[in-house]
């Protein structure tokens, strides 16, 4: 049974599942480090997915789609940045509202712009090409998934490393962490918490937008209503479980992606889709229970009246 499950196709579907979660979670991680509670990843990812399809359709070129996705993610993130940072609104309320806003907005724009409901697929939509890296892509089992992939997928792993360097080895990273921990202390040394928080939130918008582009132009080539389907929330949990550390976030994303990929495979083996769909969420909950001692801080954040 295990030989049937663990093959190149499984690795491939794990990789597919992981990239969007990882990208969004990295964005959430930056926000967490800057002291902004970011739960609108889901909405920004959805906006990114829609914009990616729209851009790619308009220009018949995936590059413009990715650009659209990034811009859309960043634009949506500004709603949270303005409300939570400039206006000191409740980030939880704003996050929920932004998620619902994007669900409604994409649901509205789909029929208004493309005249369809539910799903928009069209030959003009240019999907992201997969580039095979000669030699590496021939490695058995892992090769095809890791080294025959989209540009966004290639970017995501080095990006994780780059963010580690940024956070822990550069002056800007130090300042960002300081802002998240004690904004008054940062301000008293001339570092503006507002500026850092804005950049953090906008970065998360860019990354969630990219995640949406990978979802809509990489994993499939279409936009489906609510296609982020909870991945943004899983990314929120990945930030928690990974303690807002790049390595931890990568590990948590991999765990969830693995359960999603496995579910996908088991579905092929005849398990009902309703059960396999629930798998990543169940795994997420179990992982939360296993690692529960870690998030006293978040609990305080979310239960303080």
């Amino acid at each position: 049974m295990f030989d049937q499950l663990f093959d190149g196709a499984l690795v491939d579907s794990v990789m597919r599942a992981m990239i969007p979660i990882l990208l969004a979670a990295l964005g959430g991680m930056i926000c967490d480090r800057a002291g902004v509670f970011q739960i609108s990843l889901e909405g920004m990812m959805l906006a990114g997915a829609f914009a990616a399809v729209a851009g790619s359709y308009l220009a018949a070129a995936s590059g413009l789609g990715v650009l659209f996705a990034v811009v859309a993610g960043a634009a949506v993130s500004l709603v949270l940045a303005f409300g939570a940072v400039s206006r000191k609104g409740d980030p939880i309320v704003l996050g929920i509202a932004v998620n619902l806003l994007m669900l409604g907005m994409t649901g509205f724009l789909l029929p208004q712009i493309f005249g369809v409901r539910g799903v928009f697929a069209h030959p003009r939509i240019d999907g992201l090409d997969r580039f095979a890296i000669p030699g590496l892509s021939d490695i058995p089992l892992l090769g095809p998934a890791l080294f025959d992939n989209t540009i966004i997928a290639y970017l995501s792993l080095p990006l994780t490393a780059a963010l580690w360097v940024f956070l822990f080895r550069t002056p800007m990273g130090l300042r960002l962490r300081g802002v998240g921990e004690r904004p008054q202390a940062a301000e008293s040394l001339g570092v503006s918490p507002t500026v850092y928080k804005y950049w953090a939130v906008v970065s998360s918008g860019v990354l969630a937008g990219l995640a949406g582009a990978q979802l809509a132009l990489g994993n499939v080539v279409q936009f489906a209503e609510n296609m982020s389907s909870g991945r943004g929330w899983i990314a929120v949990v990945a930030v928690m479980l990974g303690r807002a550390h790049p390595v931890g976030v990568l590990g948590a994303s991999l765990l969830f992606a693995f359960s999603e990929g496995l579910g996908f495979r088991l579905q092929g083996n005849g398990l009902p889709v309703q059960i396999t769909d629930a798998l990543p969420f169940a795994v997420t909950l179990i992982a939360l229970i296993a690692a529960r001692k870690r998030f006293a801080r978040l609990l305080d954040l979310t239960t303080a009246g």
Partner: peptide, 14 residues
């Protein structure tokens, strides 16, 4: 006005 989880040196040079 200090950052608890940063080192003394990081706090000073911030």
């Amino acid at each position: 006005r200090l950052f608890p989880t940063l080192s003394v040196a990081d706090n000073v040079v911030y």
